[in-house]
Design a binder for these strands. Sequence first.
DNA 1: CGTATCTTTGAGTCATGTCAAAAACGGTGG
DNA 2: CCACCGTTTTTGACATGACTCAAAGATACG
Lengths: 230, 230
Amino acid sequence: MTKSNNRCDVESCFLCKFCLNDWMPAIASQKINYTIKKGEAVFKEGEPVAGIYFVYSGSVKVHKRWDTEKELILRFAKRGDILGHMGLGADSHYPVSATAIEPTVVCYVDMDFFRSSLNVNSPLAYNLITFLTDELKESEHRMRNLAHMPVKGRVAQALLTLNKQFGINANGAINVELSRQDLASFTGTAYETLFRMLVELTEEKAIHVNGKSIFIVDEQKLHIHTGETI
Amino acid sequence: MTKSNNRCDVESCFLCKFCLNDWMPAIASQKINYTIKKGEAVFKEGEPVAGIYFVYSGSVKVHKRWDTEKELILRFAKRGDILGHMGLGADSHYPVSATAIEPTVVCYVDMDFFRSSLNVNSPLAYNLITFLTDELKESEHRMRNLAHMPVKGRVAQALLTLNKQFGINANGAINVELSRQDLASFTGTAYETLFRMLVELTEEKAIHVNGKSIFIVDEQKLHIHTGETI
DNA sequence: CGTATCTTTGAGTCATGTCAAAAACGGTGG
DNA sequence: CCACCGTTTTTGACATGACTCAAAGATACG
């Protein structure tokens, strides 16, 4: 995790939207950039909260461990996304870990400073409220799916989510390099089970797998398993 | 759902904290009270968002359905708690239902009005941010548990949560009247499975069941199943 | 006192996790 | 270029936790 002072300017980042305005130069001056290697942590579960991060480039997985050997990946963050906002709550320890899944640059703002910015900048606060609400919605949605949706549907759901979040690359494959283990953790299932499901979905011609690349061939067939209308 | 205009004054409600101040009489004037019968809905999944609710008395379950026959109870709300804050997000439809589990009075504020209050009242916005963050934390915690924790542990966890939220009554039992079906839905399991787990926990002398009442006898033994240090 | 609802128990099935091992792959150094 | 080693993928067999279905008690209710 190496430090630098590049300014960042991300159209989709709601902090940037504010800190680039003339009337909020204070935030910009507080920003620090960190470069993070693949597999390296931005912060770890249980650590005291230092600040809040915004992804400038690369991608990060946000995960929570269970029983030393198992983990659940809660979400992914890419350019423009926030990390560490859970540090805003009552407890001053991160309840999750954030680990880069490819070389990543994040922009860091001290939590006290961010907190006071919220108090003087209501559009920023309002944007954060909308963001948190949508996160909560998504989280409760996935919670219900974990409770009631069979694994195959959850795999389908995970692929659709990744497709939406990362888009497709030049070849038409979902544009993330994600290990099978991580895909399993994101689905909330065992490695081998995930594997079998990918084979089944391939046989149904819903997806096509080539090495690490995954292509969504027929979105409708995935939706059948999620049991959700689009 | 019958309408009235009682003023409410709930120490633990963060809206009340603001709307009782002289400088925020506007909110108070906008509040409407609704009386809701047991089993009646405050709002239903899929309905267009009208406003935000605060529980004045009684208790409400917040739940999300799956497949017509199954549901997951996400949380409970009692005196002072918010309902319908998910309406603050991008989509203008409630993603969950809220149903009274006992006779309840809620206080209603129109969403547009609440939104504009947030813009002019930064302490209110800041409080909401803290609240949403803690909700999100809790939600992701339960998400991980649903993915990895066995049912017995989740039952234990559910009982500990209920104990914490509702406290105990004069007899020492957890102070909610909750159907077994609802307890199962809160745990994210089938009715019969929940039942067997309650029997097992009773045999282990971790809890004691008497009719609908549940007593926590040995909190430590419950914690063993949740696998979490206190 | 009959009907409906909820509780309790039993038995069977199935999905999913676990374990183990073979096969394929990728890199490294001689 | 090849032999070697570590890692990831792939497959098979198995164990079991949890859900389903069904039916018998119990309790509430009108």
